[in-house]
Design a protein around this nucleic acid. Structure first.
Length: 451
RNA sequence: GGCCCUAUCGUCUAAUGGUUAGGACAGCGCCCUCUCACGGCGUAAAUCGGGGUUCGACUCCCCGUAGGGUCACCA
């Protein structure tokens, strides 16, 4: 970048929760600056005193940090008003702006003093790094307001002053700011400030192609995704792919890797539509990269400790990695489909003999006894493969003998162990439950035939 | 409506004048298999329309059309 040091900014307004779009814009600013060894300034744009709150500011900071982002300086516009006031006065003195007495916008009976910038109405052209040259006719802007009073700067003015003071070189922001740019350039020129390089990011739309908002039906607050059990790595990875492409076919990137490969060249021009399914899929890939230990930690173990023997919870992790796309889904699995690992099931005889409805020749019980006998020779902590090596031959023998299928044996076995029509396979189940518990459950199933 | 931006499979995107237009998610089919899930293989699916420029357009230009953004003393 011409050898000059890059300075980008993350300027959220603390008037709401941390929005997906805000996070993505922050991410792009972060990646661009870090890629170029530059600085990032975080600026809380809290000039709207009535809507801004410390709580929102805190959530935004926490959320961005949770995603893994960082910055090199922090400031609040509310603490910089003396600077705006001074520059406002300077512009008025230089004749570039003037104080105007006029009826208040919200109450026409009251008269107020606002500061307006003198605007010659020239045509303004600026270069956008993503879209190329953009031209605006500024006459329709008129002498626009830059301060609500001599001391109360409006957003556009504060932004230009802060960008100037912190030496911002690159303004990377949402496409919705394109039309704000000419007015900010006009202020820059009045102030004699250098013009930063602009890059306007495409917007994120919902499936109705409208700007993402709460009414889109999707969560738009980053923290809601965290609470739902998404990984920051997954969110970052999905967010960066929405509107940016590395060029090749690789899709999974960590934050560190993104810093290396990120380039403004890869940023898309057109808006992207939010796709939760894809997010889920990307997130699952990151969940699978976790070690079993880390995975377990994300599950808030305290909640499961009581009903889940820790050994079995640990052994269930691979099953969770296979099925869950978020940690909320993982918990649902533990309470539903995988609950049988921790709690012995209640069995229905009809389901037990589902593959042999009339229990032809009374073989179901016979087969279960055969498995029970075989299990006696197995060590307590056998692996799924060992269990399979032991039992599969029995199932095959049964298949040949009764001209049924292996299911004739495997179905009742799996059901005896799980009590569910859908569950992990019986070998894995026996491996996790242990030989003793497995035998107990088989005996319980056998009892069904006594009555 | 004015102004501005945008336009490749349903979605995210690759291909920056020459490719059988590639990948991922979702879909569908097959395989694996007692079920579920995973996995493997395969399949369907796109260059918005019309004009140019060019030997040759997804790619460059113009016009339409469509979508989006923005028109505050909110940021």
């Amino acid at each position: 970048m011409n050898g000059a040091r890059v300075v980008t900014r993350i300027p959220p307004s603390p008037t709401g929760r941390l929005h997906i779009g805000t996070a993505r814009t922050a991410l792009f600013n972060y990646l661009f600056a870090r890629h170029h060894g530059g600085r990032i300034v975080f600026r809380s744009e809290d000039t709207d005193r009535t809507r801004s709150t410390p709580e929102f500011e805190q959530e935004i900071v926490n959320g961005l940090r949770w995603l893994g982002l960082s910055w090199d300086s922090f400031s609040r516009q509310s603490e910089n008003s003396a600077r705006y006031t001074a520059l406002l006065a300077q512009l008025v003195e230089e004749g570039k702006a003037y104080v105007s007495r006029e009826p208040a916008k919200d109450d026409p009976m009251r008269e107020v003093e606002v500061v307006r910038l003198k605007n010659a109405g020239r045509s303004i052209m600026f270069r956008d790094e993503i879209r190329g040259d953009i031209t605006f006719d500024t006459t329709e802007l008129g002498d626009f307001v830059i301060a609500r009073s001599r001391t109360d700067a409006v957003y556009h003015f504060a932004v230009v002053v802060d960008d100037l003071d912190s030496g911002v070189t690159h303004v990377i922001r949402g496409e919705d700011h394109i039309s704000n740019t000419p007015r900010q350039i006009l202020i820059q020129e009045a102030l004699g400030a250098p013009r930063p390089i602009y890059a306007h990011l495409p917007l994120i739309l919902d499936e109705r192609r409208a700007k993402m908002s709460k009414r889109s039906g999707y969560a738009v607050a980053i923290m809601d995704y965290r609470d739902e059990g998404f990984l920051p790595e997954g969110l970052v990875n999905y967010l960066v792919l929405l509107g940016w492409s590395p060029g090749g076919e690789r899709e999974d990137f960590s934050l560190e890797e993104l810093i290396k490969v990120f380039s403004i060249e890869g940023v898309q021009k057109s808006a992207a539509i939010w796709n939760r399914e894809k997010l889920l899929s990307v997130n699952q890939r990151w969940m699978r990269k976790l070690s079993d230990k880390d995975f377990l930690q994300q599950l808030e173990p305290p909640r499961f400790k009581a009903s889940w023997p820790s050994r079995q919870l640990e052994l269930a992790v691979p099953l969770l990695k296979e099925r869950a796309r978020t940690f909320t889904e993982a918990k649902e699995l533990l309470e539903g489909e995988l609950r049988c690992v921790a709690v012995a099931p209640e069995l229905k005889t009809a389901t037990l003999t589902a593959k042999e409805p009339s229990d032809r020749l009374g073989i179901t019980a016979e087969m279960l006894r055969a498995v029970e006998a075989a299990l006696a020779g197995l060590t307590e902590n056998a692996s799924p493969d060992e269990v399979k090596a032991l039992i599969m031959p029995l199932a095959d023998a049964q298949e040949a003998k009764s001209k049924g299928s292996r299911g004739a044996m495997l179905w009742p076995l799996r059901y005896a162990l799980s009590g569910q029509e859908r569950s992990p396979d019986p070998f894995t189940l026996i491996s996790i439950l242990g030989t003793q518990e497995s035998v107990r459950r088989i005996q319980t199933a056998l009892d069904c035939f006594k009555s």
